[in-house]
Amino acid sequence: MTGPAMLKEFEDNWVTAMGAWFPGERVVLRGKDVLSDLGRRPWMEYLVYAITGRESPELARLIEGIWAISCSYPDPRLWNNRVAALAGTSRSTGVLAIASAVSVTEATLYGLRPIKRAMDFFYRADSKLKQGQSLEEVIRTELKSFRVVSGYGRPIAETDERISPLLRFAKTLGKGNGPYVKLALQVHDYLKNSRYKNQINIAALAAAILADEGLSPEDLYNLATLAFVAGMFPCYIDARQKPEGALYPLRTTRINYRGAETRHWG
């Protein structure tokens, strides 16, 4: 059903199994009572349940570790963090700082887009491999179509210092040895020794570890949305504590103008 008929069907009528608040009484999320049940569990388990519907302390701990190791770098030079720091130096509010920095994390070079696309690549690659294509064919097709393999290569630095720590952490939970992690490392070996020289980055490894847990790219995207905030708060707080306007002020000569010569309007 589409068009006005669909809108009439939904007018003042939202039917959902997701959850609701009964004012002054109780809250339900995905069929469970929040105040007596879900609310007593760790927050990460609540979030994983809210997004995926899965009750798994093990999965929540794995995701929490991926967040802690991978995502929250407290450096104001990083572009999403820089927005939070600039908000601090301009004396904006903390929520505006974090919300805007989170929105900027939905980037192409880093953050949400590579994370979601890396998992999507592994699922598509696995399907093609099962149809008989070679890994080289799969990678070459990906490069021909998109110029990159999401999750491989990195701006600023060549190698990703997070790979070994995350693998070590995953192994403490008995994870990190699944077929998608093996596929991710095979792609790394191929690309590293090719003319592209691209190495695996944390987006691919995190995506592969969680693909082995059966998550979808959409689940991963939703779960990663807030993963970066612990690096943003320190940048905002630090800039708030320093003099206003002190974060990387730029003198006029820092503008490298390459446009039209001076001219007059009209």
């Binding site: 600039l86 301009s90 505006l96 920095a101 900027v104 306007g245």
Partner: peptide, 13 residues
């Protein structure tokens, strides 16, 4: 969103 958040504050905002 970033421009609004950073340009919302007490210093020049």
């Amino acid at each position: 969103i970033a421009a609004i958040a950073v340009g919302a504050g007490n210093l020049g905002g």
